[in-house]
């Protein structure tokens, strides 16, 4: 979705929902990144580490969901000028995630500042930060 009217401070960004994080896609990403950490694909290792009984999603995937949310809203992810985040908690296979944000500033140069977040079940934060986008 691309909004036709300029955003205002306080606007809520349309949420992006990931109904269930897919363990198979973690395996693909592990191969793409040559990421040897077995927590992304070996449930036995996850259990041995006391981290639960589901594979752990790669942190960059979680950031990617937030970028997708911003791109859907702004008319393309290339409009993201800057994004700065902290990783607050792990995401596991099967988790339901919501990505969202709030407009915090609108610049004369067409820039839009937002607070952004990713949350498990829409309530438990797993990533939070800020983003600046180009508008129009």
């Amino acid at each position: 979705m691309n909004m036709t009217t300029a955003p205002s401070v306080g606007d809520e960004l349309p949420r992006l929902v990931i109904e269930s994080v897919d363990a198979e896609k973690m395996k693909t990403m592990a191969a793409l990144l040559a990421d040897s950490n077995p927590i992304h694909w070996d449930v036995d290792t996850v259990r041995e580490l006391g981290m639960g009984d589901q594979p752990v999603n790669q942190g960059p995937n979680n950031l990617g969901y937030v970028m997708n949310m911003l791109g859907d809203w702004a008319g393309g992810a290339e409009r993201i000028r800057q994004i700065r985040v902290r990783f607050l908690d792990n995401v596991f296979a099967g988790d339901r995630l919501e990505a969202g944000g709030t407009v915090t500033a609108v610049g004369d140069d067409g820039s839009i500042d937002c607070d952004v977040w990713l949350a498990r079940d829409g309530t438990h934060p797993v990533l939070a930060g800020t983003a600046t986008l180009s508008w129009g």
Partner: peptide, 24 residues
């Protein structure tokens, strides 16, 4: 293509890579 599939991003035909490629 595979990265877009993993993170649920659209498959674009305009030659622009997802911004996660800045990181990768």
């Amino acid at each position: 293509w595979l990265t877009n599939d993993v993170i649920g991003a659209p498959q674009r035909i305009d030659g622009i890579a997802h911004p996660m490629f800045c990181y990768y």
